[in-house]
Nucleic acid binder design. Structure first.
Lengths: 365, 365
DNA sequence: TTGTAGGCGTTATCAG
DNA sequence: CTGATAACGCCTACAA
């Protein structure tokens, strides 16, 4: 059996020759304590190696001083995207002396309320937010504190930080068009996500529509699942149907490697034959070859900021800004280059063997 | 102000017409309760939406029912390696109804002890373990429960799960030699880590020595920092000094992309010109092009297992096995092929421009 | 099978 | 500035 920490605040008080309340005051940095007393008691605390019992503190104070990030995580799977949010949020919480945890289990309404009711947390961070999100309604109705990474259709009274997907897509197209590209495909979020009103999916699509209109481009759009094999197949099929393509914009984060691999197999060079613009964090963009030109998705910073916002909320400190939309910042790396008019032997490429056959897909206007 | 959960066990008891202790028993699944009573009380709990106050439970029970993974995490940086441990451990803890948290801050002796003393956790999972690790000594001496992902020089009485780095390296060499390769470089852990007795670094080196001996190979070993640019530089220099190279074994996980990028830039084809064997999880191996042949590093499973072990320990349940070494499982993907004797125009490659200059490195025997 | 009562280690209120 | 003392919400002998 492990040696328990017998030392309590009472013993500290006794050794220091003061009352428990005085020790408690010192522990909580209250101002109304004589400097001499404070020093003496702190010395005793040090000597005894005393640490306050956090559960007792939480119970007595009526605050858990804990927050959680609600991650709709599939078991085993976590990407750099979520990880950025997570590490950022964790570090910010640690800085504020708040306990941080990750809720990995799928949340039901009941589960979500339980987090608050059972005093596991004082507040949560929501991610993967939908335009109309039941979690938001539920928490708002119960008046439980929370902040979002993402935002809804109606955000009055809500606190959030989100990436500006709409302008990210527009910026991506601006970049390619600026390099002379005219035949650009857009690899969009899966249709079900769009229909369900998943924020990034909806807003990326809006950005896409605006970009088409702005530059007078032909619509070449394919919706794919966020998996490497699906993107691989989609890319193959896309180039089959649109051999004139010289540009590609993707919203998939890490899975863009599927497109790269497909192009590689088709004998298409990046960026000589096809330029790619993605949405990606620094880390992710550097993970593939060539490093991707991408709208920078600052996941760490967003998680950090969200966490700070929540803690401020819980401390009843004023929030300077409570709704922030992070503007896209296009980082040019090595996956884009000026358009390069194709040589005439292009069609020979199509005689190459393709290992994975394409699933049926629609190429919508 | 958020609506607080007024409902307590006392109210449940009153409404159900029983005593608090009965409700408590039901909450804790004690057997000594009449079935009728149990059902009635559970109905009341449901109706009232009651959730026990976890802080109070922990205080009264004298157990936090919480564990933590001690991650010597550099701020902002987390790789798929740590993430696998983390998600696995988190899921296992959740299954056991234990609270899980990640300690992101660098631990001092004081900090580590505080975790226990302040009842934040009942036990911890250590990772990045050294052959002689002060944390292990400290916890052992205080008789605090813990398990390790990794293991020490002396492991008597300790509980751990670790990946068999030594045999992983041997297996990697076996594979390459089996394909006819004779000139194989080994990209080792940085010297400081080896000297400090970092477990994987030490054991990988042992495996390397044994592999050389087993197959009678020439030693071509370079120690690199675990960063993409460093590995890039090291690869360039390595091929400069050893143009006869046809095989490469790396222990770096994600950073191996640096080698791939260097080879790409040097005009070397993978696997036609150079075969690579890495140590990597499924996810990581698939992230680069071509997908890497690698000794599978089952990080999720290891985190999961470590967490289960710790929880069992804390529940005083018997541990079936308390020291497990995960055997390497070589997964052949697309970065290795039979040796392919070089064409005579190889040296022309060295006239290509290299963007990053190599830092000075030693190529030890 | 159920109820009573004391205690878990702090914080907070209110006197002094 | 300091000290009693009552919560905080639950668990757990012990008794019935």
């Amino acid at each position: 059996m492990p040696e328990t920490n017998d030392i309590t605040i009472a013993e500290v008080a006794q050794v220091a020759g003061v009352s428990v309340s005085t020790v408690s005051r010192i522990l909580n940095n209250r101002p109304d304590v004589a400097e001499a007393t404070r020093r003496r008691v702190q010395q005793v605390i040090e000597d005894l190696g005393f640490r306050p019992h956090v559960q007792a503190q939480r119970l007595a104070a009526g605050k858990s001083r804990s927050i959680a990030l609600l991650n709709p995580l599939q078991v085993k799977v976590m990407t750099y995207l979520e990880m950025g949010f997570f590490v950022g949020a964790a570090n910010a919480a640690a800085e504020e002396n708040f306990f941080f945890s990750l809720a990995t289990r799928p949340v039901s309404e009941d589960h979500l309320l339980s987090l608050y009711k059972s005093a596991q947390v004082d507040g949560v961070i929501l991610m993967e937010v939908y335009m109309n999100d039941w979690r938001v309604e539920l928490l708002r109705q119960h008046n439980y504190p929370f902040v979002m990474i993402g935002h809804c259709a109606n955000n009055t009274g809500l606190h959030f930080i989100d990436f500006d997907f709409e302008n990210a897509i527009i910026t991506a197209f601006d970049h390619l068009v600026g390099l002379g590209h005219q035949h650009i495909a857009f690899m969009a979020f899966p249709t079900p996500l769009q229909q369900a009103g998943f924020g990034p999916a909806v807003r990326a699509q809006t950005g896409y529509r605006k970009a088409l209109q702005k530059h007078g481009l032909e619509a070449i759009c394919v919706e794919v699942d966020m998996t490497v094999p699906d993107i691989f197949d989609a890319t193959v099929q896309l180039l089959d149907e649109h051999p004139e393509l010289t540009g590609l914009v993707t919203v998939q984060i890490e899975e863009t490697v599927g497109a790269i691999r497909a192009l590689h197999q088709l004998g298409k060079k990046i960026p000589d034959d096809i330029s790619i613009v993605a949405i990606a964090s620094e880390k992710t963009a550097q993970l593939v070859t060539p490093p991707l030109t991408a709208a920078n998705f600052p996941t760490y910073e967003m998680g950090y900021k969200a966490s700070k916002m929540l803690v401020n909320l819980l401390k009843n400190e004023p929030l300077e800004i409570s709704q922030v939309l992070v503007p896209p910042d296009l980082v040019v790396r090595q996956s884009t280059s000026p358009v390069h008019h194709p040589a005439q032997n292009d069609h020979q490429l199509w005689t190459m063997p393709i290992t994975r056959s394409g699933a049926s897909r629609s190429s919508q206007q």
